[in-house]
């Protein structure tokens, strides 16, 4: 198994905490016909980082950078969860058993599945650990 197959490129955008910034980001992606699977905002004093999981990461990064946004790729992994009561618990147990240190996480649940997106410090070890404990990871090729 190549752990690389499971490393997904999340887009991280620096944004000042002021009205209209999220709209500007979303509009840019709309113009490029890019679909957003999931996003979250991490907020600090006066500024934040918008994190996005999109179907076409490279064109999205290029578009946002072109508009002057400070953007970067961040490696994340995505764990498939059962979209039913106890789904998160099952996944969380796997993470616990694999002794994975989570920096941050966010989730989405759609009509097909529920997914937990994770930023971890030791990504290769995390991928191996989750798979060993029976967890199912989304493949990076879904986001290209």
């Amino acid at each position: 198994m190549d752990t690389k197959d499971f490393i997904i490129k999340q887009i991280s955008v620096f944004s000042e905490n002021k009205p209209g910034r999220l709209a500007a980001i979303a509009k840019a992606l709309e113009e490029e016909k890019i679909n957003i699977f999931a996003f979250s905002i991490a907020e600090s004093k006066g500024f934040g980082v918008v994190r996005l999981l999109v179907d076409k990461p490279a064109p999205a990064l290029e578009k946002l950078a072109h508009l002057g946004f400070m953007v970067s790729f961040t490696d994340v992994i995505a764990v498939n969860m059962k979209d039913e009561p106890g789904g998160l618990y099952e996944t969380a147990k796997i993470l616990g058993n694999s002794e994975i240190n989570i920096e941050y996480a966010y989730a989405y649940s759609g009509k097909d599945a529920a997914v937990l997106i994770l930023r971890v410090d030791q990504v290769d070890e995390a991928i191996r650990g989750i798979r060993k404990s029976g967890g199912e990871l989304l493949k990076a090729e879904m986001f290209k």
Partner: peptide, 14 residues
């Protein structure tokens, strides 16, 4: 902040 120092992490900025 200079672009090259942004690696996507909020904690770096803080």
């Amino acid at each position: 902040i200079k672009r090259e120092f942004f690696k996507g992490e909020l904690s770096d900025l803080e």
